[in-house]
Computed example of a mutant assay.
Amino acid sequence: MYEYRKLSPQQQAEIVQQRLAKGYPPHSPPHPIKNQEYYLLTASCYEHKNRLNSSQRRQELLNLLFENLTIHNLEIIAWIILPNHYHLLAKNIKFICLSQQLRLIHGRLARQWNLEDNLSGKVWHSFSDRAIRSERHYYTTLNYIHYNPVKHSWVKSPYDWKESSVHWYFQDKGREWLRNCWVEYPVKDYGKGWDEN
């Protein structure tokens, strides 16, 4: 996303033409695989700014995601809400409905936070999705989500981050299940480069 800004106008035009030739939108993340059961959904704050800078804001976003997405039969299986982005592992996605709901949620929060922070301008970048291809990919994604606050140096342990489904899994399945999942499906380089400028 940020590399595009460094390109010449001619290079930008070439990239847009390549995207259009593939049937992708000119600038938004493409959503080419639409027939899988599970997806990793990611949305980030514009330019990775820390607009989700309080536990209250992160919890508010999480509540809105559950309220607005689950009524459309989308099941949120795992989540992490960080100061500048979030990840959801979700099931039963209808992409048109998902896009509409995320626009509503993000738009409402952008307006509210801009007023609270006495700012104006863009708050969110478009969401992206990755189809989950296998059982290994599913559990590695689950671990990636739970490990994300450690990866980004917000905490030393996944259990120290409040807005995470790791606590639900701990309560429902126990620490040993989580530990075994981590050993059997290690994160390694999963996600490397996804959120680099």
Rank of each mutant, 00 (worst) to 15 (best):
Y2D: 15
E3P: 00
Y4T: 09
P9T: 01
Q10E: 14
Q18L: 01
R19G: 08
A21K: 09
G23V: 05
Y24Q: 10
H27N: 08
S28A: 15
P32D: 01
I33T: 13
L40N: 00
A43I: 10
N53E: 09
Q56Y: 11
Q59G: 10
E60C: 10
L65P: 13
L65W: 13
E67G: 02
H72L: 12
H72Y: 14
N73Y: 15
E75I: 15
E75H: 14
I76T: 08
A78R: 03
I81S: 07
P83A: 02
Y86A: 12
Y86G: 10
K94P: 06
F95M: 09
L102V: 05
L104Q: 14
L104D: 11
L109W: 11
Q112N: 05
N114R: 06
W124T: 00
W124S: 02
S128Q: 01
R130K: 15
R130A: 12
R130E: 15
A131L: 07
A131E: 06
A131H: 08
R133Y: 11
R133W: 09
S134C: 09
R136D: 14
H137Y: 01
N143W: 02
H146Q: 14
Y147I: 13
N148E: 04
P149H: 01
V150Q: 09
V150L: 12
K151F: 03
Y159Q: 07
D160I: 07
K162P: 00
S164L: 04
Q171G: 08
G174S: 12
R175D: 14
W177N: 11
Y185T: 03
P186Y: 10
V187S: 03
W194K: 13
